[in-house]
Write a protein that binds this DNA or RNA. Structure first.
Lengths: 249, 249
DNA sequence: GTTCAACTCGTATCGACGATAACACAGATT
DNA sequence: AATCTGTGTTATCGTCGATACGAGTTGAAC
């Protein structure tokens, strides 16, 4: 009964603030609007949360709590590295679905980092501990946590705040695989060689990217502008088609 | 130009805002403090910058401009991948030396992304074009730009906003090497498939021939037969175009 | 030299905000 | 009944971003 007659004042305020924040054009709300929407006076808000930053931190924690609940519900699978990738995708998806909540966590004025950020850090650390226990990690878990978390935050924030500069959602997966791949080793004990044996042949995307860059720097005179444009388009497609590079097939 | 007096006031305001922002405990300044420090009235500020966001954007652009100037001054070295790493470290160092300026770029309320962000993106893209031209890249330069930039931003912001969670400065280098290493391939001159030219760059005919050979062995499914035929025809023409071999640019 | 117009700049001000003081009220405890 | 505690309301303060208005200032025309 979300709209019950008598809800806890704290809950009403949090609910109103969450709703207002979700529809706000920018990641900010005024305490007055929250109080009016919640039907309470201003002093009530400050008694409960002490400060506007406290209110925002509580809102962030509350929103993140649901995300963490769904993440905790996901039982650890047999492959901890696969859990890593799922965690990355969940993190990114949550940021895109709740942009204002996510941006609040990295907004200035938030003196103390929300507790949810530390809990997310701890959850990621736990997964990496399992990876280390399985012998899949090539660096200490604490270091791997910092690397993965910061890269994930960067990808999410870039997608949120510069959508026109990051139109390709595949770049998140690419960054994810690059980061995780460099911190882990494959599970197969037979493939103990950490150096991926290259067959010596440049794969199609590499060759296409190389040619495309060379052509961009030096336009061959025997091609018309239209032909060059179409060729560049095809090379772009060839470079992007096959996902992972030659590393670790 | 009849803007002599205006330029002076504009410069004074920018200087005062920069100084105040550098010493501010949080990444924000009040227009009143800026006006008082600059010795001008409030209407002058709004006449010159239109808005507080406009003022902050101008301040950010001004501060970033000096950073970009030092980056432009660094002439490209012989190894473009080494330039990539230097660019990463410069980016991170700038963020740590000017935390408030850096946080402003990703602060909410900044409606339009500062022009300096786009210029930084373009500069990174230029370096990656050179990497691609040297055959060192395994993905298209545009995608590599997004991956590297977002990871770098994430590392810098994590160091700035969560210093207690990221006490280990080595994690930035680790992330840097992981990301760059996954997007580039080592400069191995002893590659059997394609003999690189003396200047280390694969000329257009060689790159075209390599790609043609790879495509003949492995037809990409996203191309129709007619498209593949035309592409092969063009690649043959490029492979036979021995005469050019000009210096790039 | 006087007058007028255009422009510049500072004072005063507005509305909104974050935050707080003071007071009024209900129910529980003694 | 008297007191205490937690709650809710009104009024208010100081600051902020932004602007209207009029007092200077310049330059040129008469």
């Amino acid at each position: 009964m979300p709209y019950g007659e008598h809800m806890d004042a704290r809950e009403k305020i949090l609910e109103a603030a969450t709703a207002l924040l979700a529809e706000a054009p920018v990641a900010d709300v005024s305490t007055r609007a929250v109080c009016e929407a919640a039907g309470v006076g201003a002093p009530m808000l400050y008694r409960l949360f002490g400060d506007k930053a406290g209110l925002l931190a509580a809102v962030v924690d509350r929103g993140f709590e649901r995300y963490l609940a769904s993440k905790r519900a996901a039982r650890p699978g047999d492959d901890p590295v696969a859990d890593l990738k799922k965690g990355w995708d969940n993190h990114t998806r949550f940021a895109l679905e709740h942009p204002n909540h996510y941006r609040l966590m990295y907004s200035p004025g938030l003196t103390v980092p929300p507790a949810s950020a530390q809990e997310a850090h701890a959850l990621l650390h736990a997964i990496l501990e399992r990876c280390a226990a399985a012998g899949r990690l090539t660096v200490p878990p604490a270091l791997a946590t910092q690397v993965i978390m910061s890269a994930n935050v960067g990808a999410a924030l870039s997608l949120l705040t510069r959508p026109e500069q990051y139109p390709d959602p595949r770049f998140s997966e690419r960054l994810r695989d690059a980061v995780i791949g460099s911190l882990t080793r494959p599970a197969d004990p037979a493939d103990a060689t950490d150096a991926p044996a290259s067959d010596g042949q440049a794969p199609v995307p590499v060759a296409a990217a190389t040619l495309a860059a060379r052509l961009r720097a030096e336009v061959p005179p025997t091609f018309t502008a239209a032909e060059s444009a179409l060729l560049q388009q095809w090379l772009e497609k060839l470079s992007a088609d096959q996902g992972v590079s030659g590393r670790r097939r």
